[in-house]
Simulated scan of single mutants.
Amino acid sequence: MTIDAIDELVARSKPHHELARFHRFHREHPEVLDFLVSEIRLRIERGFGAFSFASLWHYSRWKLEMKSGPTTTYLMNDHATPYYARAILILHPEFNGRAELRTATPDRVFGTELEPLPKKRQKGYARRLRWADGTPIELGWRPTQPHVVAYAPATRADIHPREIV
């Protein structure tokens, strides 16, 4: 079994039953992390400044099931969404500050926190994730095995046989 960036992140985190479930699911379906990261990159490349982890989570469930066919079901528990959100921002800090986050259990587990809210927020503002000691994510811990996307989703738009009116 090869060690990947998620394995390293989990090894340095505090034990928690949801973390164990997240880790098990990742080991069984590494394509989910790859799909999410690829879609975020695609969205940014197409000029969007922000994204929603919740929307991407549901979209990935849809797209990965459609690709796999009706015999494969992705039992993607919504409780894993904040674990994936934190993991993606830790492994890909270039996405930090582009998605809205709320304080959640994974902050305590991974040793992260949200930056304090400024008194006046700029348009399009999203709180950034940082390490619990206040260190910016990009300047703190880094995995020895960086996450590299192995699964490449289709980059063309979905095509439907006829337009719905």
Rank of each mutant, 00 (worst) to 15 (best):
R108I: 04
T155M: 14
R130N: 04
R61A: 11
E94I: 10
L75D: 04
L101A: 06
P82D: 02
H147L: 13
A126F: 14
A85Q: 00
I137P: 13
A99M: 06
Y84F: 11
W62P: 00
R108T: 06
D133L: 10
E113N: 05
L101C: 06
L89R: 02
I137N: 05
R128E: 13
K119T: 12
R102S: 13
Y151E: 09
P116D: 11
T103N: 09
Q122V: 14
A104P: 02
P116E: 07
N96Y: 12
Q145W: 09
T73G: 03
R61V: 08
Q145M: 14
L89N: 04
P153W: 07
P82M: 07
Q145K: 14
E100N: 05
P116V: 06
T103Y: 07
R128P: 10
R98N: 10
V109L: 00
H79L: 08
R102I: 10
T103E: 09
V148L: 12
L117M: 12
F110A: 02
W131T: 14
H92W: 09
T103A: 14
R102F: 09
G140M: 11
F95R: 04
H79F: 04
L91K: 05
L139A: 15
T71E: 11
T155R: 15
R61H: 11
I137L: 14
G97A: 09
P82H: 04
K120G: 01
A87S: 12
Y74F: 11
F95T: 12
P136A: 15
A152M: 09
Q145L: 13
A99W: 06
A104L: 05
P82S: 01
G97K: 11
L117H: 14
G97L: 08
A99K: 02
G111M: 01
R121P: 04
R102D: 08
A80N: 03
A99S: 15
D107N: 12
A150R: 15
